[in-house]
Write a protein that binds this DNA or RNA. Structure first.
Lengths: 125, 125
DNA sequence: CGGCATCCTCCTGGATACTG
DNA sequence: CAGTATCCAGGAGGATGCCG
């Protein structure tokens, strides 16, 4: 499988798209976007508090990637103690739509999925 | 960060939702759903051919998870050589909507993201 | 054909400690 | 406060071989 890269599309574009899907279909990215979608600027620590379960490392990493991809704006206030504020860019906000649609779907179907799993697990043993 | 699990929600539900997001925000799941969305029943190998870059192992794994979650129906035809067909369940189809919305977004913004990255990379060095 | 089992490698990501 | 740096365990996932 995937022995011969399909000739019908430019392999570089293929790779890029593939990688982009990986980035976009990222749990932490989605959760961070969700928290930032309300519009206010958020500080690093506050963001960490809101995204439940995220480690500081992953928060940093996720924010860097999002900044690099142009989803997030990072504003450094040169004061002591340091103050850095994050907010969604225009593109970031546009990303929030499909992302939150997916989140909504997950919530809506949580029950059904849970049941499906239980059924599957008992059936198969 | 994430030292004290927030008390405002049931930690078990929290965990489940978190895990579910992880499942739902999965690259291969999305790509597989995309290929299956056209409605026909698809055989294992054919599916593998369509989802570019997926290994046989990941395809099997993804399909099993999706089946377990009730997104996919697996039909075994007891013939020789073996014939197994996969199709989206009703829930699977409903998942396709937000999933493909995300894919569409990625495609639409591929250019912008690429530019943002280039800009970020040259600026920071 | 449609897998499962095994091995092995690399990357992800948590924990911890330290800085401007 | 907002990170960076380091270490390290565990899981993801490719390659290969075998089977009903």
């Amino acid at each position: 499988m995937s022995k011969q890269p399909p000739e019908n599309t430019d392999p570089r574009v293929e790779a890029l798209v593939n990688q982009l899907i990986g980035r976009v279909a990222d749990k932490w990215t989605m959760l961070v976007v969700e928290e930032m979608a309300h519009g206010e600027e958020l500080r690093f620590t506050e963001l960490g508090r809101r995204v439940s379960g995220i480690s500081q490392k992953m928060l940093t990493q996720t924010l860097r990637q999002m900044e690099r991809d142009g989803l997030v704006t990072r504003t450094i206030h040169p004061v002591i103690p340091p103050k850095v504020e994050y907010s969604l860019s225009k593109m970031g906000k546009s990303f929030h739509e499909p992302a939150s649609a997916l989140g909504t779907w997950a919530l809506d179907n949580l029950e059904r999925i849970d049941q499906a799993r239980a059924k599957y697990d008992t059936a198969a043993n």
